[in-house]
Design a protein around this nucleic acid. Structure first.
Lengths: 192, 192
DNA sequence: AATTTTTTCTAATGGTAGTTAGATTTGGGG
DNA sequence: CCCCAAATCTAACTACCATTAGAAAAAATT
């Protein structure tokens, strides 16, 4: 890996961390630079602007969580059935927020107050992610793992809410993503 | 109501709206002043600082939602039982976020990235609010409206997540707080 | 070792932002 | 109508912020 690639990655990593903690507007380029052991002006050697850096962090965050969920669901043991697949997806989503870097959590925490033009450029992937979960839930409902009368559109959003809000209250190290996922699954999909 | 009280109220109302939309760091004093039809410097006739204005908005938001939930629960018809009380509380919480001004939603959206000293000063009331819900859920569980094996601490946080995250996806006017509450209650407390 | 390229820095630009001081305008009271 | 108090404004202060241009340092190449 070239030195410039390593430096770029370091800037992205520290930017993700700062954006997750302080928010887009609350994070100054100087904050990122300081955490990355360089001067603010150096950031512009690698990134066009603060907006571009931010957009890249959000994009990576969304891609990472989508990839992780897909892989986990595909790898779920078949004897776990649809509920097992749901559990795997929930656990992967939570792990990406709490255990694997700051990109996905920075995305979740910041998207609501992101400049509209940046939001628009990631609606495609966001919608695809939502669609992925919709299909997961539909298959589970068809298989009887979710009550027939449940409104899946709302259930999906309530699920996102319950998962994403964990960023606001789960203390680092207190509960694993696996434990949280199990409990959330038991809460939303009691049965088995 | 004195003129100065009316003006102060107008500043608070517009500040709540701006803080809800743009976040604390993303909102400039000039944004608030512009929306309140005055100059930025005039704000300082009524408020010590931007921080003090922000803290007051958050405080009002927390108090309003707590008061609303308490009143709704107390007013819930007794034939609805514990589940009815839960439903009333959920509906009141959601109504405060979506239908009655911007204070509570500004609080919810901003608290995660609020200066620590401001956060600390409202932990007392926040904890009391959490405790109130804990008791509501315990009573419901004792009465059999919630499964005995459910972990109420986690259930309470998942409930907060599902409720609060509605700020990120519910379009204004699309669903009423009552409908959302009913669906959320059916999702988390199926039974009846 | 010298030269070239890459990376990082310094200094500066142009503008923004929170806040203060005093002036001005508006409103209320006598 | 005059005077005073309250409310709002203008101008300025002090500091901050994103970004650029060119210099300097570091690294790579010849």
């Amino acid at each position: 890996m070239l030195k410039s690639d390593r430096t770029r990655q370091r800037i992205l990593d520290t930017a993700a961390q700062e954006f997750r903690q302080r928010g887009y507007a609350g994070t100054k380029v100087n904050d990122i630079a300081f955490a990355a052991n360089m001067r603010a002006a150096s950031i512009y050697y690698y990134f066009e602007s603060k907006d571009q850096l931010f957009e890249e962090v959000l994009g990576i965050g969304l891609k990472l969580v989508f990839d992780a969920v897909r892989k986990a669901v595909e790898a779920a043991p078949s004897q776990g059935g649809h509920r097992g697949r749901l559990l795997a997806g929930i656990e992967a989503h939570l792990a990406m927020l709490h255990e694997y870097g700051d990109y996905s959590s920075a995305n979740i925490r910041n998207f609501g107050q992101t400049p509209v033009e940046i939001q628009e450029r990631q609606m495609g992937l966001r919608n695809a992610y939502g669609e992925y979960w919709r299909e997961l839930l539909m298959a589970a409902q068809d298989a009887g793992a979710i009550r027939q009368e449940a409104n899946l559109s709302l259930l999906r959003m309530f699920l996102f809410g319950a998962m994403n809000w964990t960023l606001e209250w789960v203390k680092p190290g207190k509960m694993s993503a696996a434990e949280l996922a199990q409990q959330l699954c038991d809460t939303l999909f009691p049965g088995e």
